[in-house]
Design a binder for these strands. Structure first.
Lengths: 216, 216
DNA sequence: CTGCAAAGAGGCGGC
DNA sequence: GCCGCCTTTTTGCAG
């Protein structure tokens, strides 16, 4: 049975739990996860920097700075295994948005003929534009890349960026338009796009771009 | 050492790992989490419905339908504890957006004097409006509630709803406007709000509403 | 520190 | 199944 008080109040009823306590003494960062019999996500957790106190039948986890407290009442402890942790393996990910964006930055013409790269992660007051390009006519093109689904939030995001870039005198001469790039366009987003004369969708997936590059 | 292939490719180098396998046989849902010495989030994981196969020095997790595969090579196994799981405790959360929304639905006048509730989760083609209200002048008011930060995405969300409701003849008589309710307004959003005559921000947190209700 | 956005996001409810 | 949205999101990064 557990109780969490912090960002919300949460009560977890009596049940079987697996608790991982990544104490600093054992080589961890102080974070805690409390898993139930199902789900990928833990039933309860505590962030890095949490202190661990133990009393008979009670595990107490406290993060004073964040004002968070997790208490776990233990009716029966099936098992415990303290383990010193020495090695933190390195995690390498291939195929995340960063890499998709990398490929498109190297070969912007894949998205549209004549397209050239100006900047990556171009900063606007509303946030960073994935790719800022220039087209065959010298017009600026802001590109928002999605590794998976292109939905309305991506459209809003791009519209925000466009409105910022439009206001920038640097780009006012030739105008600005937008490209949404991804493997799939959500229907509701497609409908909205019909009303957006300055924004187009380009259907391109990570694999498509890889194939195009290796074949060329 | 682990390798995941599915939505992306990921390689996890040699290191100490804690693996929770929620096998169906033991009472779980087939999900798997692979934790390193730090972080709340697992280094690798597999969704519910994953099959588990074991070979000498290799743990293999497969989810054929989703095309996902996780392999963990075990150089040294410090410990293993098989455990039948019988009880899944019930998790109750207090203070999530649902409850915040509940409180506001009970007492809409807290947001604005004279405000009355018409509907909760009012369905529009653009999505569900948290609260649909009517003000002292009989004008419809769409309310978007955020438990934490109110940002531009919330503003865009509300604007979408408003444009849908505006088109509905049912509400055209008296007009429609919007309220963003939350404990904090993001600066960039505040700037955008200045240009929105029909949308106002109401600074209210979950605790504020609780206090107002208990005091009244 | 805040602001902003990705994530193998996960998970839930509705249609 | 897709769609829309919340999450104690967590995590990372840049200004």
């Amino acid at each position: 049975m557990a109780r969490y008080q912090g960002r919300i109040d949460a009560e977890l009823g009596l049940g079987d739990l697996i608790i991982i306590v990544k104490t600093v003494e054992s080589g961890g960062d102080g974070s805690v996860v409390v898993h139930g019999p199902s789900l990928v996500t833990p039933r309860n957790w505590m962030p890095a920097g949490t202190a661990f106190f133990e009393e008979p039948g009670l595990l107490r986890f406290e993060h004073v700075e964040r004002g968070e407290l997790l208490e776990v009442w233990v009716e029966e402890e099936y098992h415990r295994h303290p383990q010193q942790v020495k090695l933190a393996g390195t995690l390498v990910k291939l195929g995340a948005e960063q890499e998709f964006s990398d490929l498109l930055a190297e070969s912007p013409w894949i998205m549209e003929e004549g397209l050239g790269l100006i900047a990556r992660e171009y900063r606007t007051p509303a946030g960073p534009v994935d790719l800022l390009c220039v087209d065959a006519h010298g017009q600026a093109v802001a590109v928002e890349v999605k590794r998976r689904l292109v939905d309305t939030s991506a459209l809003w995001q791009l519209k925000r960026y466009l409105s910022c870039i439009e206001k920038d005198p640097q780009w006012q001469k030739h105008g600005v338009r937008g490209l949404l790039v991804g493997p799939h366009l959500r229907k509701a987003c497609k409908a909205h796009l019909l009303e957006e004369s300055k924004i187009q969708f380009v259907r391109l997936g990570f694999e498509d771009v890889q194939d195009l590059k290796t074949s060329s």
